[in-house]
Amino acid sequence: MKSWISFLLPDDEYKEKKMLYFFTEGAIILFLSLIVMMICNKFFNLDTETVLLAAIAIFLFYVTGRYILAGMEYTDIATKHAYKKELRVICIRTIGFVIIFMALYLIFINIPSSLNNWVEILGLLISVSVVSFLSSYISLKRSYKKNKELL
């Protein structure tokens, strides 16, 4: 079936079907949440920026969350050895991201001048890294569990 969304979908037909479900569920939840926010707007004064940000966040968190929990990201991880190897790759990728981001920040933006600036940039970097690591870790764990059952 030809559709402009095809470029966003994986080649594997099971994954493609699942992703279409997640996008559709996300779109319906987004639609319902917009109706709720429209009703709420009659009683409280909702800021436009907040509403737009919430709408984007709802859709993104839902689709990403479903994808992570579905355990279909790491389709070939079915043995303990492969699991440990992939976990090492995730750790190295996260540490690599921290180092590269920090290096690029110090070279192209500036060296933080005060303790507050250091805390700000390190806080942001650590938060992003932790979220990225945890999402990959949960996805890997779920995929491993699912694949083991399918052997």
């Binding site: 037909e13 099971y14 070939d76 699912k146 694949n147 399918l150 052997l151």
Partner: peptide, 11 residues
């Protein structure tokens, strides 16, 4: 041309 997981699910 599919993933191993898909074969497992079909089986």
């Amino acid at each position: 041309g599919v993933t191993r997981q898909t074969i497992g699910l079909i089986e």
